[in-house]
Design a protein around this nucleic acid. Structure first.
Length: 488
RNA sequence: GGUCGGUUGGCCGAGUGGCUAGGCAUCGGUCUGCAAAACCGGGUACGGCGGUUCGAAUCCGCCAUCGACCUCCA
């Protein structure tokens, strides 16, 4: 249980995972900003940290998993006058801001359910924690690391950096930031361009606004995560996750805020997943390769040759290490789809295996390798490669070229149940067996085919096979019978 | 321009100073009435140039190339 190693962005090293309050683990992950449909970029962190959550639980930790919903928009860089993303969308569609946020929150939940991503224990909304954010700003002001200008409050990075180290997470040095500053609009209120907003006074047209000691306005970007993680996980907690693109400035600012408010660092392990590319290119709206999850599941995007099931997307993401970029292409997705089908079929074959007196295969070694892979910074591709080695073992036992003892068979079943379904979170999407009448009819047809084969009536047997195949039923002959799969 | 991270065989994608990653595709074989499935086996690698080393794809340097971030974009 103490063998888990994870890569900590803060130290840029793999470190042994030791929770602050064993056996409890606090896990905070940056969730979506709900102003648009969930896309591949949302799937990657959701799945990465779903696996971490599942694995920690599997190891016996009691995990409190917090994943926020950002429904207080963030200022938009290229919008005129720093407009709130959610309120902008609201005006465009003539809806209430909260209506937009609610709609896309449901859309996000729907996609997560399809991807078999477990619900977090707490899913706090930024809009529901305005008071906590205001309190945090007051703490920061009290400690002297913030200043108010015209109803807005900014974080004093330069002062903070004199005592602490601003830039430690992303490897930035304040002097470089000063040297590289660009000219941006609306910077004149700040002492320094790299200062960031804790509270913004709302412009007259800004719909989302709350009262505060400083102005009617809205909280700054990075504050919600600091306030909500502190509220639910405490001033110090174990793991904070999110996409690599959030390292700077978002997570850097979170560190600064928490440290400035509480006087100490809040996060022990920072974990970041890498990004997704499509056909080798960054995914972006302007590049026309922006594919949302629903388009994947239905195959409706023009770059997709076919639809890809949620489990295919999940499996594909897990076949790459979470700290590597992963490139989506039709060819790669289709090979993942086939590979996963083979893995899932093997788990079904496993349940039909008959034990022998003794084993000719080493199941304990397989188990150890699986744990070693997961313990080594959640190396799911290596885990999957071991599971495929196991597939060969399962099929060989089924074919009679290897044998397995009863106790080894039980262990093998446990390994596959634990790793394939519980930890990797795959589910069988194959429809076989869902309907007793349906599978009964297929079995009946295939028994008739067996009889036809027995009397060498191959015209009839081939006709049955071909017509079943046309209906999506794949017939697999075995030595002493048959098996089949339905991909409807 | 700055910081960081990549560049692996037909495609995807791990890993390691010398010992088969794995998947998909492909080729040969076994099985089969045929096919499929399954099993066995084969081929194709480590961006370029130098250096360290008995030995580097793995360490170092330079170059090329791709990507992320660089203050309000999850």
């Amino acid at each position: 249980m103490n063998d888990l190693i994870i890569y900590n962005t803060l130290t840029r090293k793999k470190e042994q995972f030791i929770p602050i309050n064993y056996p409890h683990v606090g896990l905070y992950v940056c969730g979506p900003t709900v102003y648009g449909d969930p896309h591949l970029g949302h799937a990657r962190p959701a799945i990465t940290f779903d696996i971490l959550y599942r694995y920690l639980q599997h190891l016996g930790y009691k995990v409190r998993y917090v994943r926020n919903i950002t429904d207080v928009g963030h200022l938009e860089n290229d919008a005129d006058e720093g407009e709130d993303k959610i309120s902008k969308k609201a005006r465009l569609e003539q809806m209430e801001p909260m209506e937009i946020a609610q709609y896309y929150t449901f859309r996000y939940h729907d996609s997560m359910r399809l991807l078999n991503v477990k619900n977090p224990g707490i899913e706090p909304r930024a809009s529901g924690h305005i008071i906590e954010q205001i309190n945090m700003i007051e703490e920061i002001l009290k400690n002297g690391y913030g200043y108010e200008v015209n109803g807005s409050v900014y974080f004093d990075v330069e002062k903070y950096n004199k005592k602490y180290n601003y830039g430690k997470l992303s490897g930035r040095i304040l002097e470089d930031l000063i040297a590289n500053t660009r000219d941006l609009d609306g910077q004149d209120e700040k002492k320094n361009s790299f200062d960031f907003a804790l509270w913004k006074k709302a412009s007259p047209g800004h719909i989302m606004r709350w009262p505060s000691p400083w102005s009617e306005g809205f909280p700054g970007w990075h504050l919600e995560c600091s306030a909500m993680s502190t509220k639910y996980l405490g001033e110090e907690f174990d793991i904070h996750g999110g996409g690599m693109d959030l390292q700077f400035p978002h997570h850097e600012c979170e560190i600064a805020q928490s440290t400035a408010a509480n006087g100490k660092e809040s996060v022990k392990y920072w974990v970041h997943n890498n990004m997704i590319t499509i056909n080798g290119q960054k995914m972006g709206k302007s590049l026309g390769n922006f594919i949302n999850l629903e388009e994947f599941f239905t195959g409706s995007h023009k770059l997709l040759e076919k639809s890809y099931s949620p489990m295919t997307v999940r499996f594909f993401i897990m076949q790459a290490h979470y700290r590597s970029t992963v490139d989506f292409s039709n060819e790669a997705l289709q090979s993942a789809e086939k590979g996963m089908a083979r893995l899932i079929t093997a788990t079904e074959t496993l349940n039909k295996l008959k034990p022998s007196d003794k084993s000719t295969v080493n199941i304990n070694e397989l188990k150890d390798k699986c744990y070693q892979a997961m313990n080594d910074d959640m190396n799911t591709p290596i885990l999957i490669s071991h599971l495929f080695d196991g597939v060969r073992i399962i099929n060989s036992i089924d074919a009679g070229t290897e044998s397995i003892s009863g106790s080894d068979l039980d262990l093998l079943k446990k390994i596959y149940n634990d790793f394939v379904f519980e930890i990797l979170g795959l589910t069988s999407e194959q429809a076989k067996g869902n309907n007793l009448a349906f599978s009964g009819v297929v079995d009946l047809m295939l028994n008739l085919r067996m009889e036809a084969k027995a009397r060498k009536d191959f015209r009839t047997s081939d006709k049955i096979r071909n017509e079943l195949q046309a209906l999506g039923i794949i017939v697999k002959d075995k030595k002493d019978g048959f098996d089949w799969e339905y991909n409807g």
